[in-house]
């Protein structure tokens, strides 16, 4: 389990990092190495050059900007776990972060790295989709923003171009009703199913609900049927039950050695039920 040969650069500026990426289509960005290093060790990836972002300034920081929090791509999961700003303004992130692996890995792995990796069982893609976050990227063609809805497009696939770097994520703080649910056999395991749900409490109802599912499905996605259901009226136990049934009907879960499709369908239903009931209590 030794990586194949690769070149390694540790640029000191974002521009320099982008140049390296633009110069070589087989270049890969190295952030915390949480996912990339195992892929290299298993020889499942063989990039020609690793562009290490650890010395690139400006990718750190958690900044409260009022209606949103701007999180640097280089912020580690552990920093999010310990951040007062996150705890107060985006408690759903605090709730989700403890499900990411173990403290040692959370101390290495980064928010931006996991987001850009777009692992369907990743906590951040699921949560950011439910929050409607905005991704900030930079590349040889300049800076741009990408909405979460347009960012996660498939398993391990985002709309970030090969030569672009995710620099920040802007996460709205207006969705004050929230729930994050993960079913994992053991602490730190990949989840068998993840559900994130958010909304804006308004007149005893839940407005602009967003519900996303991860892990149980081939790629992280929203459950728009469930969202529509939640906009119909006050959140009740009955509505939670209906949401669970709707969720079960609207997903086509994967099957693997950890659980077949039918099992995961039941799991998604259970997590949606739990999430909606939690929204009810929070709304």
């Amino acid at each position: 389990m030794k990586p194949p040969k690769f070149r390694y650069v540790a640029p000191r500026t974002l521009d320099e990092a982008v140049e390296h990426l633009a110069a070589d289509p087989d270049a890969k960005v190295l952030s915390g190495g949480q996912s990339l290093m195992p892929l290299l060790a298993m020889r499942l990836a063989a990039p020609s050059i690793l562009v290490d972002l650890q010395h690139v300034p400006g990718l750190d920081g958690i900044e409260d900007q009022g209606s949103s929090v701007l999180i640097g791509a280089g912020v580690t999961h552990r920093e999010i776990e310990r951040s007062d700003v996150i705890a107060q303004r985006l408690p759903i992130l605090s709730s989700a972060v403890v499900h990411i692996a173990h403290p040692q890995i959370r101390s290495r792995g980064t928010f931006g790295g996991s987001t850009a990796h777009a692992d369907p069982s990743g906590e951040w893609p699921t949560v950011l989709l439910a929050l409607g976050a905005t991704m900030h990227a930079v590349g040889p063609r300049g800076r741009r923003t990408i909405e979460a809805d347009d960012f996660f497009v498939g398993p391990f696939t985002s709309t970030l171009d090969e030569d672009e770097i995710l620099t920040h994520v802007s996460v709205p703080t207006t969705r004050t009703a929230w729930s994050f649910q993960e079913a994992a056999v053991k602490r730190g395991d990949y989840g068998l199913a993840l559900v994130a749900a958010t909304g804006i409490p308004r007149d005893g109802q839940l407005a602009e609900a967003r519900v996303s599912v991860g892990a149980a499905v081939g790629s992280v996605r929203r459950l728009t049927d469930v969202e529509r259901l939640l906009s119909r009226g006050p959140v009740t136990d009955a509505l939670a039950e209906e949401a669970a049934l709707t969720a079960a009907a609207s997903v086509d879960p994967i099957s693997d050695i950890h659980g077949n499709s039918e099992y995961r369908r039941k799991l998604v239903a259970s997590l949606v039920r739990r999430a909606v009931l939690e929204l009810k209590n929070g709304a």
Binding site: V185, K186, R187, G188, D189, I257, H258
Partner: peptide, 9 residues
Amino acid sequence: DYGLPTMDV
């Protein structure tokens, strides 16, 4: 993929 028990269980 091979699930050893951990302290949390």
